[in-house]
Simulated scan of single mutants.
Amino acid sequence: MDKKLSKQVDQLDAAIEQVERALGPILSQPLNEQLSKLSAIERCELEALIAYSIDTLFWIYLKVNGVPPKEHPVMAELQRVQRYIGKINKAKGINGEDGGGDRMKLDKQAADRFIRNAISSNK
């Protein structure tokens, strides 16, 4: 093996070890246990991250094996997961570019009416 290829293999090996270290805490427990400790929005984020990661790894696999990934259904799946990530960010009040965003505003008068009606209907 020539020196250039050997260096690239060593870099790949180091990158894989880094990924394994980063994923260690996540992979050390069953997913159900981890999800049960998270809020609803955090669960959505983690599940979207997992889906996006798997799809991305498959995209890389296709690319490495000479299959054009842009023509493969994995692209549609990546785009679908990206839309979900956008919905999650919108729910969190994150507006993609500036980190701020539009949060839902509480209509206090409407909330008061709902509460009053719910209380009066229970009597």
Rank of each mutant, 00 (worst) to 15 (best):
M1G: 11
S6T: 12
K7M: 13
D10A: 14
D13M: 12
A14I: 15
A14G: 12
E20A: 15
A22N: 07
L23R: 07
P25M: 05
P25I: 06
I26R: 07
I26E: 08
L27Y: 06
L27H: 07
Q29M: 08
L31P: 02
N32R: 15
N32F: 13
E33M: 14
L35C: 04
L35A: 01
K37F: 01
L38P: 01
L38Q: 10
R43M: 06
R43F: 01
L49V: 08
S53P: 03
I54N: 09
T56S: 12
L57H: 05
L57S: 08
F58V: 06
W59S: 05
Y61R: 11
L62Q: 02
L62R: 00
K63P: 05
K63M: 09
P68E: 10
E71D: 13
V74P: 04
E77D: 10
L78C: 01
Q79M: 13
V81M: 04
R83T: 09
R83W: 07
Y84A: 06
N89P: 01
K90A: 08
G93S: 00
I94D: 00
I94V: 13
G96A: 10
G99V: 03
G99R: 02
G100I: 10
M104D: 08
D107L: 03
K108M: 06
K108D: 05
Q109S: 09
A110S: 05
D112I: 07
N117L: 11
N117Y: 07
A118F: 11
S120P: 01
N122D: 11
K123L: 09
